[in-house]
Amino acid sequence: MCAAVLAGTALSVSGLALQTVFCNPLAGPFVLGISSGASLGVALSLLAGFSFGNFGVLGAAALGASVVTIIVMWVSGRFRNVGVLLIVGLLLGYLIDAVVSVLIAGSEAEALRVYVTWSMGSFGRVLLDGVWVFALAVAAGLVLIVVSMRYLNAARLGDDFARGLGVRVELSKKCVLLGASILAAAGTAFCGPVAFVGIAVPHLAFMLFKTTDHRVLVPGAALCGTVLCLLAGLFPVSVPLNAVLSIVGVPVVFYVLVRGSRTGWW
């Protein structure tokens, strides 16, 4: 249960931060490939044998997530179109999946079993001593995001506008993206590649709280994410977590797409 609360918070806040920074309503740790980057880190540590306990897996995941985030940030600076960013994220995801399948081909049966179980996604496997590490990583990510509150509130209007309001954009952006990467990495490392929480929950929070003020949205998204993950955790173990989350997530994303076509995003 602790795992569901932590993962729900981590992925939702990460998704909210990414959507705000990239001014893209369809951004999220999963869509942008950041979760995949974390997965690669996990795969390397589980399959290729670089295992150093909880910190090792988390560290590898955070590193993988950060590398993908840097690539995504670089791309977003070059292409203004919101679609390009998503496609790049998807491509990175595919690339990483390919690398992981090569790793799988060369790995031993026991390591493979651990990896496959992890990759199904679950809130039930985090052990008690692991929870502390998980909580610590989530807290670190949240702090990085919360200290950049002024930037988050101005970011949707563009960097120049935020600068005009006296926000130190470059510093804040790095802070937020690092925070979002850590959160996505923590959620992924401990609970597997969990889909749709990051992309869908920020919109649920918007709908519920009807504000763009991140002082409300950050805790709001954390709350919505927690509730969603707790509900998803209620299903019997035989139902894969990602199946439940997809059933909730896809309609939300679809709604955002339809709504976006009305307001002229695409």
Partner: peptide, 17 residues
């Protein structure tokens, strides 16, 4: 860029940032 969902009041409030 038109910030999606932001109300006029919220936008003007950014001036206090």
């Amino acid at each position: 860029s038109a910030p999606d969902r932001m109300t006029v009041r919220e936008f003007v409030g950014l001036g206090r940032s």
